[in-house]
C-alpha cells in the first residue's frame, strides 16, 4: 500500500450528540480519480473538512502521504498546515477572494506563505522580486491551463459560476498540491460547462499528475469521471467499487431510491 495518498481509518466525527461520520474507513490511491457520493446530509462535506483539517474528528486516524513519501497525520493539524503539506481544495459554495481579480486570486495561492520575510518584503530585495516573478509566471500558466487567460483582470465576483469553479481549481493547483479535493464542482453550472469541467478535471490528473478526490451530486459526471467510488449514507460507508459495480449495487439503490424500489426490482 505504498501508493496510498489518503489512508482514513475508523474516523468518527461528532457534533455534540449528532454523529456526522461514523467509523469511516477508506483509502485513496495516488493518481486516482476517486469520488464520494451519497444523499444529502450523508457526511460528504464533513469528510472533506476532516481531510483538510477544518474539522477535528474525535476518533480514528487520517494519514496523508505527501511529498517525498512523507506520512503526515491530518488530525490535530491546522487547515493551513494541511494545505501546505499538499492538500488543495475547492468549496461547495465557491469561496473566492471576491473583490480581487482572477489573477490576484491565483497569485495568492501561488505565493509561498512560509517564513516571515517581512524585511525582504519591505525592502523589495532581489529574492522577493524573484519570488514575485516566479509566482506571476505560475499564475499566468495556470490561468491558461484552466482557460481563464482573457479573464485574468476581471474581478472574481463578476465571473460566471463555471468560471469561478475553474478559478478555484487554478487557485488550488497554484499551491502545488499532491491531491486536489473538489466539493461539488459542477453545482450551478450549465451542461456545456459540465463537459468542460469534466475534461479539465481529467487534464489536472493526466497533465499535472495531481490525484483527485471528488464529491458530486451529478451522477452522469461522477460515473464518467471517477475510477472508483465510495458511497456514504448517514455518515457510514455503505459501498465501494467501480462505477459499474456501484450502479448495480442494491444497497446503493436502496439508499438513493428507498427500500421499496429494491423490492420492486427484486421481485
Amino acid at each position: 500500500m505504498s501508493d496510498v495518498i489518503f489512508d482514513v481509518r475508523d474516523v468518527t466525527l461528532r457534533f455534540g450528540g449528532v454523529v456526522s461520520l461514523n467509523d469511516v474507513t477508506l483509502h485513496h490511491l495516488r493518481g486516482e480519480i476517486l469520488a464520494v457520493i451519497g444523499p444529502n446530509g450523508a457526511g460528504k462535506t464533513s469528510l472533506f473538512n476532516s481531510l483538510t483539517g477544518v474539522y477535528q474528528p474525535q476518533e480514528g486516524s487520517i494519514t496523508f502521504v505527501g511529498r517525498n513519501e512523507k506520512s503526515v497525520s491530518v488530525i490535530g493539524r491546522k487547515a493551513h498546515r494541511v494545505a501546505s503539506a499538499g492538500v488543495a481544495r475547492t468549496f461547495q459554495a465557491s469561496r473566492m477572494f471576491s473583490a480581487l481579480t482572477a489573477f490576484e486570486n491565483v497569485k495568492i495561492g501561488a505565493e509561498n506563505h512560509h517564513g516571515f520575510g517581512v524585511v525582504g518584503a519591505m525592502l523589495r530585495g532581489p529574492r522577493t522580486r524573484r519570488d514575485d516573478r516566479l509566482s506571476d509566471e505560475r499564475t499566468v500558466e495556470l490561468l491558461r491551463f484552466v482557460g481563464l487567460t482573457d479573464r485574468a483582470n476581471t474581478i472574481a465576483a463578476s465571473l460566471s459560476y463555471g468560471e469561478r469553479r475553474r478559478l478555484e481549481i487554478a487557485r488550488g493547483l497554484a499551491t502545488n498540491p499532491q491531491v486536489l479535493l473538489l466539493d461539488e464542482p459542477a453545482a450551478g453550472t450549465n451542461p456545456s460547462e459540465k463537459v468542460e469541467l469534466t475534461n479539465l478535471i481529467r487534464r489536472v490528473r493526466d497533465e499535472m499528475g495531481v490525484t483527485i478526490l471528488l464529491i458530486e451530486h451529478d451522477m452522469k459526471l461522477v460515473m464518467s469521471l471517477a475510477e472508483r467510488l465510495y458511497v456514504l449514507n448517514f455518515g457510514s460507508v455503505i459501498a465501494e467499487g467501480t462505477p459499474e459495480e456501484i450502479r448495480a449495487n442494491p444497497v446503493v439503490i436502496e439508499a438513493y431510491l428507498g427500500s421499496s424500489a429494491t423490492q420492486a426490482g427484486g421481485s
Partner: peptide, 18 residues
C-alpha cells in the same frame, strides 16, 4: 496580499496555506 485574502475570506485563505 495575504492580509487581503484573510480579510476577504479566512477559510479560503487557510485552504491555500495562509
Amino acid at each position: 496580499r495575504a492580509w487581503t485574502a484573510i480579510r476577504e475570506d479566512e477559510v479560503a485563505a487557510e485552504s491555500v496555506g495562509i
